[in-house]
Every structure is written in structure tokens, then in C-alpha cells.
Amino acid sequence: MFPDSTGHNDPAESIDRKCKEGDGLFFVAEQDGTVVGMVMAGYDGHRGWIYSLAVAPTQQRRGIGSMLVRHVERMLGELGCPKVNLQVRTRNSSVVAFYHSMGFDCEDRISMGKLLSRSGDDALESPSDTH
């Protein structure tokens, strides 16, 4: 469901890490026992995030994505979340249009990120290792 995922966004690994969190903000849409969509969200007490939303290509434009977004918004609202953010790759104009249709606006922000070492990679030094 994630055709251009980068290595650190490997869907199987991301889903595994999210399920280990146990925060209840991972939802799957099924139809006749087949997964047709999913959404992964989070809330840190300050604002909520929609991290990943995917709908099977054969099931797109049937309201599944909209249903998943509305469900996440309700769940975040029940947690007291005042605002939800998300990020979309700039080249993905159809996804930007989808979120616009759901009431999201583009905000004047710069998205910044930093990859952290993963197990097996160069380990991050802990403060006690720097002496």
C-alpha cells in the first residue's frame, strides 16, 4: 500500500513498531476479510499526527480514506487533542487535494527530520559513553 516508501519507512517495520506502542491509534479497514486500508496516528499531549494513511489501489475513491481520517479525528478528539497535523510529499498533488477536501490546509512550516541510528548501524552514544 506504500509504493514509494523509503528504508526508514518500511511499512512492515513501521507497523510492528506502532503495534508495540499500544496507544490504540492504528486502525485497519477490512472488506470481506481483506485489508483495504489503514491509518497510523499519534498524540503526544500537544498535537496529534496522522503518520500514514493508505488505501489499496483497487479500493481508492470509495470513501475508505475519508472514513479512516474521520475516525482518527474522532479518536484524537476523545483524547483531548486540539489539532492534528500531517505531512505530504510535495510531489504528491493528488494526496494534497484529498486532504484539502477533508478540511486540511497547507501551513507555512518547514518540515525537518533526522535519521537516528538503528540497531546494527553505528550506535548512538549515550552520555556515559562520552567520558
Rank of each mutant, 00 (worst) to 15 (best):
R70F: 12
S14W: 01
P127Y: 02
Q87D: 11
P57C: 04
C19I: 10
S126N: 07
M40K: 14
E78M: 14
L115S: 15
L124G: 12
V84D: 11
D32C: 09
L86E: 14
S93Q: 13
G80S: 02
E107Y: 12
Y99A: 07
S119W: 10
T6V: 11
C19S: 09
A29C: 01
T90E: 11
L53G: 00
T130F: 10
N85D: 10
N92L: 12
S111T: 12
L53T: 01
D23Y: 07
M1R: 02
R109D: 06
I110H: 15
L68Y: 14
T6C: 08
L25Q: 00
L115R: 15
D10Q: 02
P11K: 03
L115H: 15
S5A: 13
G103M: 08
A56E: 03
L68P: 02
P11M: 01
V28I: 15
S52D: 15
L124W: 03
C106D: 10
F27W: 13
T130M: 12
G77S: 01
R70L: 13
Y99R: 05
P127W: 02
E73Q: 15
G24T: 01
K83F: 14
L53W: 01
P11G: 06
A123W: 04
K83M: 14
G65S: 12
D122G: 10
F27D: 06
E78N: 15
D4E: 14
G22M: 11
N9M: 03
R61T: 03
A29M: 04
V72M: 08
V88D: 08
L86D: 04
G7E: 11
A56S: 01
I15D: 01
W49Q: 12
M38S: 05
M67T: 03
V39W: 06
M102V: 01
V35L: 15
G42I: 02
L68G: 00
C106N: 06
S119V: 05
V28M: 05
P3N: 06
V69F: 10
C81H: 07
L25G: 09
M1I: 00
A123G: 03
S66F: 04
D121E: 06
G37N: 04
